[in-house]
Amino acid sequence: MSRWLRQHRYACMVALRRLWSHPFSSLSNILVISLTLAIPIIAASVLVSAQPVVKQLPVSPEVTLFLRPGATPDTATQLARQLREEHPQDIQAVRVVAREDALKTLKANPAWADALSVLPSNPLPHAIVVSLIESTDLAKQANALAREWRQLEAVDSVQLDSEWVRRLEAILGFVRIGLGLLALGVALVVLATVFNTVRMQALTQREEIGVARLVGATESFVRRPFLYLGALTGVISSIMAILFSALALVPLNAALARLADSYGTQLILSLPDSMSLVLAVVLIAILAALSARWSVTRNTRF
């Protein structure tokens, strides 16, 4: 066991010396990999920060019926019961929102409190919120019900809700696929950069490797420092990519805070959780080591 540890410690020290012996080349390669890795990390930060916001929004399709100004609470209750009885196969839930409750909700929002405080009376109508059952042809079904309910005598207007939420979910799904493809592209960049780095190191130390083989060095002994070189390059690049991403989120959050304040809300971009970042560092180190092994195998056959 101690012999095995000594061999790996020796290989790690050799890899560190090789990195240090060519500082400009090593730093250039690490910067290329780290800046490339920072792109999917920032994209993942945006996706991770947007998902809780979407989950808080009502994703079930809803249709809101606004009654005419003269409608009474009893009219709203009777109409809600009528809709439930006429469309039991389409409606999941029906709730009546009294105009007084709607006004209290709006006044609780600081963005609306000042404007509503100067009104002499409540301008809001009674409303009925209808949640529809999910189906394969939901959009067509919701539009048909909205057209039908607009013809009702007590109804002033009908609004289809949650459609924009469904579009947002579709956009997030598209972003997830794009992030996966971006991660694949980043993996190829890491493989290519480490492969070329190890290739140059192997060609530079061609004579040293030949002498080591003549005195009895095994193939694993020759290749092990190059594997550590690739793994160390991947680890250092990943850590620098996380630091670059954290720094990039500072101005992004400042700009996002100004935009969110204009809508009366708050949204902060944050890095993925620590476990995901650690797994990413380990994965990049493994990919870099595999690329180094492939490179040293191809370029030390002499």
Rank of each mutant, 00 (worst) to 15 (best):
M1I: 11
M1A: 15
R3T: 08
L5M: 12
R6L: 14
H8F: 04
R9A: 02
R9K: 02
R9G: 03
M13H: 04
R17W: 04
R17Q: 08
H22F: 13
S26D: 00
S26M: 00
L27C: 00
L31V: 04
I33H: 03
L37Q: 00
A38E: 04
A38C: 14
I41C: 02
I42D: 06
A44D: 10
K55P: 00
V59D: 00
E62C: 10
E62W: 03
F66R: 09
L67K: 12
L67Q: 12
A71Q: 07
R81T: 10
R81V: 05
R84W: 11
E85Q: 14
D90H: 06
A93R: 05
V94W: 04
V96Q: 08
T105L: 05
T105Y: 02
A108G: 15
N109T: 01
P110A: 06
A113H: 01
S117W: 06
L119T: 02
S121K: 11
N122M: 02
V129M: 08
S135C: 06
D137V: 05
K140W: 04
N143M: 07
R147M: 15
E148N: 12
W149M: 09
R150G: 15
R150Q: 15
V158M: 14
D161W: 02
E163C: 01
I171P: 01
G173W: 10
R176Y: 10
L179N: 14
L181H: 07
L181N: 03
A183V: 06
V186E: 06
V186L: 11
V186P: 08
L188Y: 08
V189M: 11
F195P: 00
R199L: 11
M200V: 08
Q201R: 13
L203I: 13
T204E: 11
R206M: 07
E207M: 02
I209L: 13
A212H: 10
T218Y: 14
S220N: 05
P225H: 08
F226C: 07
L227S: 01
P251G: 12
A257E: 13
L259D: 07
S262L: 15
Y263K: 08
Q266Y: 01
S270T: 03
S270C: 01
P272Q: 08
D273C: 04
D273F: 05
S274K: 03
M275C: 05
S276T: 11
S276D: 06
L277V: 03
L279K: 14
V296T: 05
N299W: 15
